[in-house]
Design a protein around this nucleic acid. Structure first.
Length: 873
RNA sequence: GGAGGCAUAGCUCAGCUGGUUCAGAGCAUCUGCCUUACAAGCAGAGGGUCCGCGGUUCGAAUCCGUGUGCCUCCA
């Protein structure tokens, strides 16, 4: 078969994905093997694949494919999250484009549109994951609003309500005036904003004309002021104790209060207090029994209570009121000021702190076991630095606002009667029954709560509910797959989601939901900015897959992503990946060429082959052990680098050159077969990272009995150090001689002669022929003294003489050797010093001392060799 | 204001529990090669007071303190 010049991913990826999928390799059924389970962090149903997903899902696929090769029954559950606010915002936008106003629709009509939208676009991201090669168990696909899932969320709410964890109450929350819903603290993004600090003077209620000046970035909230506050120790204002002042424009008489909460240095040291519109002011108001005047409507316009500007938008009023304050004589000045402004993660609208009736879940009790599980490593975090962050949040945990003023989501199962009594029950019928029980003669129509749950109130059940937890808490699948093995996620949802899954896991299964949590980094662009849709700095992933192939995209994100550190993504990684895949492809081509040159006898290279195959085999053994350790620590990036170098450097650059038959010579069948096996072993190590390419090359190498995806990794076994050392010596000899050739400006075709003075002639019997070929030497002889006019060099303790067939300057040679000798002597001195230091010998670990001894003896031997060589020159 | 993280080659970053076979990788640079697997390549080379200062230690890029500069999260 004719192989193309370069690897063409487009031709193979779809083919293999379909093949694996059709063969059922991705589907898991409980059996006697141990399970390795991952539940995918469900992407937003509205989402399209971006870099973050690519990294996250590639990592999961790598872990899973490796586990599959290690004999686990692997199960990777896909799914999507209904993402209430994000999806609702999308649907509202779509309706607006269609000329439909959401507010004119009934709840049912709106939900019909939303479901249509979901059916049409909701599966896109999962399809895209197939392109990436993800070995997901598609038969287990879940959605957080599936019927069964919906019920589970309802049941959990009812249960927690009955346990007394849930209550309804008015608190200050983050209000999104665009989406018209409450948001959790975690859904608010604080952005640095250039604002104006406006200084306004309030007239004091006294006989003389006296004012107190405050500074505010939100002058429109003046209308809701119910006090002015100063620091008790502030001498400037001490005389105002017990006095009142007037809110400008509306002349409301408000007290001047004293509290050490005030920062004397900030602004004028006097703070206007607006309890309805600022959390700190609210707390102050509670403390000083201040009136709360809510001057804003839900949509961000001013309410009747404001008295002025009623119905006008808060930002328009912010400008307008400044003009009016100027007219009234209350305006003092305005300064530029930079502050943090909260905006909605989903709608980007500026958040309004607002007092609002919401549903709350108290987390204190559930937080306890969840905190302990992580602190005592029942659940391990990788990297562990996130434990601190987790502890900090968990030990200061606040009540969770679980209601959202939206339609898309699980509607809160609470019903109200006319008196406002609340009946929480899984179904309306049960709520009615409860009402009847309380009021046997009552005839109220119960009204269901309009709000739905925060998305995370469903997502926190994910690892259980994908195995049908709600139907049967002891079902067979749950018993087999739960707790799941590894959760792979980004650190920015450690509170939103990770912490809450741990809490629900202990609350409802009495068990951890996963054994390890691996946090990937955030992907940033070259300028270090987080990749986001708003910035438009995320590359089009499907285009990248189209252009480069999924394997190379996978390679590029993994090679640059050390555990838990942020990743600066640069397209040069794609080139590195492409070059790598071509390297492998070309190695395949080379090996396939040999197939025809193979003979049974294989006189040409069986000798070289014995040395080379043994060395390469042991290199693979050595690397396997290293890679095992790296995977154990989730150092996936380092493991990939190890495999990369093993294939490129050890296999392609050294091994293949060593066994390559000379021009017009036959290839030994035995060496050929061994080469294929070694190649297969390498492909297997790489397979989790680059599944398509490796499966393709694996099958092109020769007829296979099995597919690479299922090939089992052998148990780890130790490499033979002796063989590895000999290989390293051969490499050093070759490099040193090539370097000398280069420095003497020899052309590649010009031959040299080599003579070696060694105590180790057996090595040259085995590997001498390789050495000779690799340095283009016309002869290789054993010598005991330096031939006149030859260049001398020392490699380890081997004395090497080289005839470059040109004039060499003996002085220059001597100088170079002298230099090396000086360095070695200095080195030896430091080692000697260390070893003669009693405290070192007493304190250091035995293996360290052993190592120093070895360094000492090696240095002594090499110095001796160098000195002998020098004297011979 | 509170908490955490990071500062290593021109660039982007590895370097686990302290010990010159760990000062490393990729890219970039320089030299020589179109050596029939690969020029998207091959063979070599150069390049770093491991942010400043102080401390612990027989020994520190690695631990502690401090300063500076960036970043993130929270208020």
């Amino acid at each position: 078969m004719e192989l193309s010049k370069n690897y063409v991913p487009q031709a193979t990826e779809q083919k293999w994905y379909d093949y694996w999928n059709t063969k059922g390799y991705f589907h898991s059924v409980p059996d006697e093997r141990p399970a390795y389970t991952i539940v995918m962090p469900p992407p937003n149903v509205t989402g399209v694949l971006h870099m973050g997903h690519a990294l996250n899902n590639t990592v999961q696929d790598i872990l899973l494919r490796r586990a599959r090769m290690q004999g686990y029954n692997t199960c990777w559950v896909p799914g999507t999250d209904h993402a209430s606010i994000a999806t609702e915002a999308k649907v509202v936008n779509m309706l607006r484009e269609m000329g439909i106003d959401k507010n004119k629709l009934s709840r049912e009509e709106f939900l019909k549109y939303a479901w249509e939208w979901k059916e049409k676009y909701g599966g896109i991201i999962l399809q895209q994951l197939k392109k990436l090669g993800c070995s997901l168990d598609w038969e287990r696909t879940h959605f957080t609003m599936d019927e069964g899932y919906y019920k589970a969320v309802i049941n959990v709410f009812v249960d927690l309500y009955r346990k007394g964890n849930i209550y309804r109450g008015v608190k200050m929350i983050n209000w999104d005036p665009q989406a018209l819903t409450a948001l959790s603290d975690e859904e608010v993004i604080h952005k640095e904003t250039n604002s104006k600090l406006t200084y306004v003077r309030y007239r004091i209620d006294s006989d003389t004309e006296e004012y107190i000046t405050i500074a505010t970035v939100r002058p429109e909230t003046i209308l809701g002021d119910t006090a002015v506050c100063v620091h008790p120790d502030d001498e400037r204002y001490a005389h105002l104790k017990g006095k009142y002042c007037f809110v400008p424009l509306i002349n409301r008489r408000i007290p001047i209060i004293f509290d050490d909460y005030i920062d004397k240095e900030f602004g004028t040291g006097a703070l206007k207090v607006t309890p309805a519109h600022d959390i700190n002011d609210y707390n102050l108001g509670q403390k000083h029994n201040l009136e709360v005047i809510d001057t804003l409507n839900a949509n961000g316009t001013l309410s009747e209570a404001a008295q002025l500007y009623i119905g006008e938008d808060r930002f328009a009023v912010r400008k307008k009121i400044v003009e009016d304050l100027k007219t009234s004589g209350n305006f003092v000045k305005q300064e530029d000021y930079t502050n943090q402004v909260g905006v909605s993660e989903r709608t980007n609208a500026v958040i309004e702190p607002r007092l609002s009736m919401q549903w709350w879940c108290n987390m204190d009790r559930m937080a306890q076991p969840a905190l302990e599980a992580v602190m005592n490593d029942d659940i391990r975090f990788y990297p562990s630095k996130f434990k601190n962050l987790y502890r900090h949040w968990m030990s200061n945990i606040k009540d969770w606002c679980i209601s959202r003023q939206l339609w898309w989501g699980q509607r809160i199962p609470a019903w109200y009667d006319k008196q406002g009594n609340i009946y929480v029950a899984p179904t309306e019928a049960e709520a009615k029954a409860a009402y009847k029980a309380a009021f046997p003669d009552g005839a109220d129509e119960l009204r269901q709560e309009e709000d739905v749950f925060d998305t995370w109130f469903s997502a926190w059940l994910w690892p259980m509910e994908v195995f049908d937890w709600d139907k049967d808490h002891n079902n067979k699948e749950l018993a087999y797959y739960y707790p799941t093995s590894t959760l792979v996620t980004a650190p920015d949802i450690i509170f939103f989601w990770v912490a809450r899954m741990i809490m629900s896991g202990y609350e409802y299964q009495g068990k951890l939901p996963f054994e390890q949590v691996y946090f990937t980094g955030l992907i940033r662009d070259k300028q270090g900015r987080k990749m986001s849709k708003q910035l438009g700095n995320s590359p089009d992933l499907l285009q990248l897959i189209e252009d480069y192939g999924a394997d190379i995209v996978r390679f590029s994100v993994l090679i640059s992503s050390p555990a838990g550190n942020d990743i600066l993504y640069d397209e040069s990684f794609l080139e590195q990946g492409r070059n790598f895949s071509n390297k492998i492809w070309n190695a395949l081509k080379l090996v396939k060429m040999w197939e025809e040159k193979t003979t049974q006898e294989g006189l040409s290279n069986s000798q070289d082959g014995a040395f080379a195959t043994s060395w390469m085999h042991n290199r693979i053994l050595e690397a396997r052990t290293q890679i095992d350790h790296m995977f154990r620590d989730f150092k996936l990036s380092e493991a990939l680098k190890t495999i990369y170098s093993l294939i490129w450097d050890d296999f392609c650059s050294w091994y293949l050159e060593w066994v390559k038959p000379a021009q017009d010579q036959a290839m030994s069948r035995e060496v050929y077969e061994k080469t294929l096996s070694l190649f297969e072993d390498l492909l297997q190590l790489l397979h989790p990272y680059m599944p398509f390419l490796t499966e393709e090359v694996f099958h092109l190498l020769r007829e296979q009995q099995e597919d690479l995806i299922n090939r089992q990794l052998p148990a780890a076994s130790a490499a033979d150090d002796q063989v590895l050392r000999q290989g390293a010596l051969l490499q050093q000899l070759i490099s040193a001689i090539r370097d000398t050739r280069n420095k003497n400006q020899l052309k590649p075709k010009e031959t040299v002669s080599v003579a070696i003075d060694t105590a180790n002639t057996g090595f040259y019997t085995a590997a001498g022929h390789i050495l000779q070929r690799q340095v283009n030497a016309d002869s290789l002889e054993m010598a005991t003294e330096a031939p006149a006019g030859w260049i001398a060099l020392v490699v380890q303790t081997e004395k090497v003489y080289l005839d470059c067939k040109i004039e060499v300057d003996p002085e220059a040679q001597r100088g170079k050797m002298q230099e090396e000798l000086e360095y070695l002597k200095g080195f030896l001195l430091s080692v000697d010093k260390k070893l003669s230091n009693e405290r070192f010998v007493q304190n250091a670990k035995p293996e360290i001392i052993e190592n120093e001894r070895k360094k000492q003896s090696d240095a002594v031997a090499k110095i001796k060799t160098l000195e002998e060589s020098l004297s011979l020159l």
